[in-house]
């Protein structure tokens, strides 16, 4: 009787501990998913802003048709890409960032454009969006790190096989210096 009670207690305790660890893994996994959806929201925001930017800039920059077309093309590529392939998506978004950066570099030669209130507003929005993308990416990568790390830690690595917990991929960029967004000084 006493032994039965003890075994039962130990069993219940084991189940509680198992449930706790399992739930923690699930919540970490959901955090990663949530962080990922944040990146997508911000990427969409950028895709929506670019046509506005091109429209505003076009009037001022007749001689920079090539740069503008490169931006439009890069945006189209980023919109059309297969959303499930993380590496491809990261690559096309990085390419879009590059073309945007060269566009902003060119605008330095057009003081009237830089003085335009409309353009200033757009530039601030775009700067902010670039920042949001990198912060969302940072948050995603931090969440992935925590999730992957937890899976490898000792009590958790036994739990992993009981559920659908595969390690996730980081959202990486090639060159760390490319993380900088175009900056604006007022």
């Amino acid at each position: 009787m006493i032994y039965g009670g003890m075994i039962l207690t130990v069993l219940i305790l084991l189940i509680v501990v198992f449930a706790y660890l399992y739930n923690r893994l699930v919540s970490l996994k959901n955090r990663v998913d949530n962080a990922w959806s944040q990146i997508e929201v911000q990427l969409k925001r950028r895709h929506d802003l670019i046509p506005n930017l091109v429209e505003t800039v076009r009037g001022y920059m007749e001689h920079e048709r090539e740069t503008l077309e490169a931006v439009i093309k890069a945006r189209q590529q980023a919109v059309d890409i297969d959303q499930d392939n993380l590496a491809d998506q990261a690559e096309s978004e990085n390419f879009l960032s590059d073309t945007l950066r060269s566009l902003f570099a060119v605008t330095e030669d057009y003081p009237n454009l830089k003085a335009n209130e409309n353009f200033k507003e757009l530039q601030e929005e775009l700067t902010s969006t670039e920042n949001r993308i990198s912060f969302a990416r940072q948050h995603y990568n931090d969440s992935v790190m925590r999730y992957n790390e937890t899976q490898e830690l000792i009590p958790y690595n036994f739990i992993v096989s009981f559920g659908d917990f595969a390690p996730r991929e980081y959202f990486e960029i090639d060159d760390p210096t490319e993380k900088e967004a175009p900056s604006v000084e007022f």
Partner: peptide
């Protein structure tokens, strides 16, 4: 106000992280 809209943007940016 431009500075205020920058502040608003910055708050939204950091709350992502």
């Amino acid at each position: 106000d431009r500075y205020h809209s920058i502040f608003k943007n910055v708050v939204e940016e950091i709350s992502l992280a």
